[in-house]
Amino acid sequence: MTDVIATAADRAARATPPSVARRVRGLSDRAIAWLFVAPTIFLLLAINIFPLIWTIRLSFTNFAANRPNREVDWVGLRNYERILTDGDIWLSMQATAHFLFWTIALQVLIGFALAWLINQKFRGDDLWTTIIVLPMMLSPAVVGNFWTFLYQPQIGLFNYAVAWVTGADPSSFEMLGSVTLAPWAIVIVDTWMWTPFVMLICLAGLRSIPESIYEAAEIDRASPWRQFWTITVPMVAPFLMLAVLFRGIENFKMFDLVVQLTGGGPGSVTELASINLKREAFEKWRTGYSSAYAVILFVTIFGLASIYVKALNRVKAR
């Protein structure tokens, strides 16, 4: 077998035009590696690093992208100071934290439960898996749109379902119009849409656990409850943590679904940080201010994600 490969390699080497071969032969492995990586690095620098550095620079100015003729002043840390002392920004951070916490908590719980059920191998489990993952295949704009109809107090199915269960009048509560219910309304929709994603990751984790471990536990007369806590949960934990990381990053920058559902309202109770940032950057055109805002959000996500990844690695190493 080795001979066959060597012969094929020789043939390929002989087929290479002499000039190219000479040139490549003159390069070290390291140089060739750089040659392959260079386009990616260049693209990364152009698309990610340069805009990041540019944003940081703008964050210290009063630049407004819609006022190209206006003089740009260096304002030092003023933008950062204004953001960190702005009560409205903190309210939008609170709304983001509420959304993040509850969506992740619910999605992990329900996603894991669904994965566990699907993993029990029953007739039609593949069909059920397909049905369950359907919501995450839809566009957020479509989901947002049809949930606004479902939440409509006069004709919405959601209100009628709640009314049927509780006996309340369907028009007596407004999921998207009430200050207390709207933050929960967006949590429900995101959970409905993205729980299948968590379920799929958990299912991969559950199916990766060798059957022999459970057999050994049964021989040791471990109860199903003990098997669950000492085998299933620890072995699925890295997968769960990965799901939490993905959903956390995604939901920290949640925009489309919530804009479609509430537009940030009523008032500003569902105005998440990304919606607030978009308004500052592309509606009010306070480019310098919104650059500082973006830098603060970036540092927050990056910092939290780094800590989390370290924790994830520790769990995996156990």
Binding site: R67, D88, G177, V179, G265, P266, G267, S268, V269, R279, E283, K284, W285, R286
Partner: peptide
């Protein structure tokens, strides 16, 4: 004013907070 968008969005927020969100 040239900064009308900022002026308008501020009013949108204050009015909606008070009228609809009852704050």
């Amino acid at each position: 004013e040239p900064a009308y968008a900022s002026l308008l969005l501020a009013m949108q927020k204050r009015l909606h907070d008070y009228v609809v969100a009852d704050q």
